[in-house]
Every structure is written in C-alpha cells, then in structure tokens.
Design a protein around this nucleic acid. Structure first.
Lengths: 202, 202
DNA sequence: CGCCGAGTTGAACTGAATCAAGAAACGTGG
DNA sequence: CCACGTTTCTTGATTCAGTTCAACTCGGCG
C-alpha cells in the first residue's frame, strides 16, 4: 500500500480553483462523490462498455490496456495513485470503448461523472481551463510515447520507462512492463541482464 | 493543386457556432485573419521556436516531424487541406517546440492566434466546446497511432495508412511515408511489392 | 547529354520474437 | 508452516521481420 493522494490536492495542483472555495464545494458535494473500492484483479471497464465517467485513483494501481486480434495485450499506460484514468474517446464521442481497466492492486477510485467538474465551480472558464489542462497533459504523454516508439530501441525504451515510473517496475510483474514497452517478456529480461552487466563492468 | 477547403466550413463542421453569426463574425474579423502563402520546402516552424499559434491548412500539404539524436526524421503526421497543424505542447506549456513544420507543396495557411477563437464568439461555452472537440480529435488520432505501433507489422501499418490518407501516397515521396510508418524506405518498397504480388496471385 | 534524387533489388546482418526448458517466487489449502 | 501447483523469470537455440549497405534503374531537369 502506497501513500494516499487526495483528490483535493490533485485539483489544486491542476487548476486555478480558489483553495477555500474548492474546499467548501467539495464538502457540499460530498454526497455526490462516489468512491469505489476495487479488489486486485477486478475490472472497472471492459471493451464494449459505454464509458460515462473517468476515475481518479486515490490509492492503488490500475492498468489500461487493449487486446489485439491475435489475443495479445498492449498496455497503453499505468495509473498509480494521483492519476486520472479515462477513455476520452469513448466518453466524448459516446462510442463503446476498446479498452480494459484492471486493478493491479487493491485500489480506491473516485468516480467522476461527466458533469462533475461543472458542479465544482460556477465559473465556466475555470472549469474549462482545468479540463483543457488535463487534455493537454494527456496529449503530451501520448506524443512522447509515439516519438519513443518510432525511434528508440528496446533498451532505450526501458530506461525511459524507469525514469517515468520509477517504482512501477517493483509493483507489477515484469511481463506487464514488457507489454507496455511493446516487446516480448524474454526480451525485457535480456535487456535488464545486459544493463546489469554493463553496470558491473564500469 | 487540390480543392480548397474553406476555414468557415471547417468551423461549421467542428463546432456548434450559429451559421449566420459565424459568417458575420468572420467578415468582421477579416482584417485580423492572417493568411500566409508558403512555398514548397519552406518551414513555418523549427525546433527551438516558441510556437504561439496554430495553422489551418487551406490548400496544399505540410508535414510535422521531429529529428532524433541519430539524425533520423520521424514524421508524426501529414496535414493536407482542411487540417489543423499545431504543437499543442509548445503552445499550451509555452515551451520551445521540438518539431519541424514543412510545406511539401505550395500551400496557404491561416494563422490562428491563441485568442482567435475567443474573438469568434462571446459565448465562452461554445468556444471551449469547439476547442475541446479539436483536442479530442487529436487524442483519438494519437491513441490509434500508439495502438498501431505496438501491435501492427509494417504491412498492416501501410494498409492502415492508405485507408487514413488515401491520396497522400501519391503526393509525397515514398520515403516520407516510410518515415511516417517508422520503417526503412527499402522495407516499404518491399511491402508494396509483396502486396502487388498477392494481388496478382488472386 | 550527364547528373541527381527516388525507387528497386539483392545479400548480409541484427535486434527482437518465438519456442522450449528449467529455476525461482508466490499463493493457497491442508 | 510446509507442500504443491501455478505463475513469473531466466536462459539457450532458432527463426524472422526489418535494417543496412551497395549496386543498379529510371525519370526529370539543368
């Protein structure tokens, strides 16, 4: 079990909502905020579902992945505490999702209805600025991933991964990291062995 | 030279702006709307630039690419007429871009200042809805690309490419398509040869 | 005409996948 | 707390998709 990242601190960090007002609003809305405990191995979304909300991960760890026509899993990203998990595509265009969201540890998430943020503040500008920030963060992340997949070798990708998610290597089975990197589990094992040898040789 | 996609029709398709108002607003703003003609081979953005606007491609074709540390180009996407070209990352977080934007044909683009859309309509909700739509389209596109890079072979990627951009294969040198697909130009040549043979054999 | 960039083709090479087998770690029930 | 089966990880041998390098063709263009 890792530290608990409060939803409030997340909102403060990613928006310009006034601190006091936000606190008040959150307590007023407390009955509307639905928390959900998820056991390791459980799914909160599966292909075909029409995704109507996003999830804020308060504690634990989830993964977001798809399955290709050959039955192979591809992990798009991990969502540890403090991250938001959502299929923007499914929500926004109102189409069934192609992705799985699975808990890799016992976790608690906060359900975010689509209209949740608008009820947080009457200031439309603030709300849309906040939403925009989330979208831009998402885009940034995706774009980095593409550049990496286009140009980096298995080893480089692994090193980048460790930088991005320093602790996740310790929290999930290694084959999932391989799935994230888009390489075979055996290859990751070898990459790590080579790096260890290089390290010793120095 | 291909057809000209008007900026107005683009706006109408991607927003809920009222048709008449939009028309009026656009003519009122006509002095603020800057068009730019770009000759084939010219750049409208290079790494290090602080990108302060987006570009709507009215006619012609551009490419958006990066250069890795080994000097290899990677084309993130093409932007034919009717597309918007922007580095969201650079604009939003106000950091220098890592990308090139180059005209592959003589083109005309419309410069979109960051505050342009807000001046289009006083209705904040409409403007932010429009912006959101663009962002979601972008995310959708990026996510597809990642899934594809993770799971598809060179041949599958090429077939997907032809579906997405039916005519671009004819408008740009083949090695650029290879760069978009993340494969060597020789490989693309072979993929196409194999496909041609399969086709004949049927 | 001769040059040059683009595309093709062949041959050798290589990074990573696949297949297979064994070792280690893990969880569960007795 | 141990024993057992299951999953994960490692290692080796082999294969394969795609790269690299080099030679050659073709079409345009000064």
């Amino acid at each position: 079990m890792k530290e608990l990242v409060t939803f409030e601190s997340f909102l403060l960090k990613n928006s310009t909502f006034d601190e006091e007002n936000l606190s008040i609003q959150l307590s007023l809305l407390s009955h509307k905020i639905k928390k959900q405990a998820i056991k390791k191995g459980d799914f909160i979304m599966k292909p075909g579902d029409n995704c109507s909300h996003s999830f804020f991960v308060e504690s634990g760890l989830l993964r977001y992945y798809s399955m290709d026509d050959k039955g192979k899993e591809h992990i798009l990203h991990f969502a540890p505490e403090g991250w938001i998990l959502s299929d923007r595509d499914s929500i926004y265009f109102n189409i069934p999702t192609n992705y799985y969201m699975e808990a890799l540890e016992d976790s608690t998430v906060i359900l975010l209805e689509n209209d949740f943020f608008t009820s947080l503040s009457t200031d439309v500008k603030l709300v849309s600025a906040f939403n925009e920030r989330l979208l831009h963060n998402h885009i940034r992340h995706l774009q980095k991933r593409i550049t990496q997949l286009l140009s980096a070798t298995a080893e480089e990708r692994y090193l980048d991964f460790v930088k991005l998610y320093p602790d996740i290597m310790l929290r999930v089975p290694q084959w999932m990291v391989a799935s994230y990197l888009g390489i075979a589990p055996e290859s990751l094992s070898r990459v790590r062995k080579d790096l260890a040898n290089k390290w010793k040789a120095q």
